[in-house]
Simulated assay, not measured.
Amino acid sequence: MYLIAEIGFNHNGDIHLAVDMIRAAAEAGADAVKFQTFRAKDIALPSSPHYALIEKGEMSFEDHERLRREAKTQGIDFMSTPFSIDAVDLLAKVGVSAFKIASMDCTNTMLLKKVAAAGKPIYLSTGMASMEEISAAVDTLKSANCKNIYVLHCISHYPASADQLNLSIIPYLKEQLDGIVIGYSDHFPGIEACFAAAVIGAQVIETHFTLDKTIPEGDHSHSADPADLKALKSRLALFESMAGSAQAISQRPDQECAKDFRRGVYTRRELKKGDTLKSEDLQFTRPASDFTPDDIDFLEGKIVTEDLPVNAPVTKKILDFG
């Protein structure tokens, strides 16, 4: 399971806080940190009520380089979401491990082609998108020679409520997008939805990350904090261990238990040499023996070749097969 800690702009433009968040995410077990690369004007008009907040999250090229270096030091991948053509160029120059496409740009063909041309893996969020739009976006990326595409189910509410999540879309996307890895980008408070998404088939989990969920603005309130992220990582690892592989059906770890747990055929009463076996002479209990309950029709009428006490196993060597 690949776990992405989405810092986004929860650093509020404080590069020192952003560095601390990378370290905390790595310590909690994240495989990657994901930021957002933009100028406020790339996202909203100056008249937007959120413009000032968005503007606080702007980062320079130097900021990006510092964060990439920190992620490398911490041994995790550095990703970001570009919100413009210029942002794609900046991130390509910085050297991100992968690009993330925001839900708002799932239908932005121009940006999709530009990101695909950078030659990096792409994680595509699908909030607000129809199946037709998602398929078209994937086709656009494929036609631009993107080799590694990850599609993330997402609900673009901040936060999303449980009844809005529709996690059953995850296996549906697997059916519709054959060969594409499907994941989940979370906007639900806590870690429950992330774990549920993994159980239902997500192979990538992205969740917002913060050091303080009480900060009133931005995505802090529905973000995971370090304790949450650590618990999620542990729970996902346990689930993966439990899930194992469907191929294990041919090499079951419990095959060796069959001889102890399956029913054999035993005598219900004392039998004498020369007796003819009848169904009422037999009982079926464990452990396994030469015969099973399915052999009852075969055993009836067979001659016993030696005396047998109660609870003796009925074996091939004590029967006369005529």
Rank of each mutant, 00 (worst) to 15 (best):
M1P: 10
L3H: 06
L3F: 08
N10Q: 14
D14N: 15
L17V: 13
A18S: 07
I22W: 02
A25R: 00
E27C: 13
A30N: 09
V33S: 00
F35D: 13
Q36P: 07
K41W: 03
D42G: 05
A44F: 08
L45Q: 12
P46M: 05
S48A: 15
Y51K: 07
A52T: 14
L53D: 13
K56P: 00
E62R: 15
E62K: 14
E62W: 09
H64N: 14
A71G: 06
K72M: 06
F78V: 10
M79F: 15
A87L: 01
D89T: 15
A92I: 00
K93C: 11
K93P: 05
G95Q: 10
G95C: 06
V96P: 02
F99I: 09
I101N: 01
D105P: 03
T107L: 05
T109V: 12
K113W: 03
K114C: 06
K114W: 04
K114E: 12
A118Y: 10
L124V: 08
G127A: 02
S130W: 02
A137I: 03
D139W: 00
L141N: 05
K142P: 04
S143I: 09
A144K: 09
A144C: 13
N145C: 10
K147W: 00
I149C: 03
Y150E: 04
C154Q: 05
A162K: 12
L165T: 15
I170G: 03
L173Q: 04
L173M: 13
E175P: 02
G183F: 05
S185A: 05
S185K: 03
D186M: 11
D186I: 06
C194K: 08
A197P: 06
I200G: 01
A202I: 02
I205A: 04
E206M: 06
T207Y: 00
H208L: 08
L211M: 09
L211S: 04
D212H: 11
K213G: 14
T214S: 15
T214K: 15
H220D: 13
H222E: 00
S223V: 12
A224F: 01
D225Q: 03
K230E: 13
A231F: 02
L232T: 02
E240W: 07
A243H: 13
S245V: 01
Q247N: 06
Q255T: 15
E256R: 11
E256Y: 03
G264Q: 11
K273A: 15
G274W: 03
S279G: 10
F284D: 05
A288K: 06
D295A: 12
G301T: 10
T305G: 04
E306I: 04
L308M: 12
L308Q: 06
A312W: 00
V314R: 02
T315V: 09
K316L: 09
L319N: 09
L319I: 01
D320E: 14
G322L: 11
G322I: 08
G322V: 10
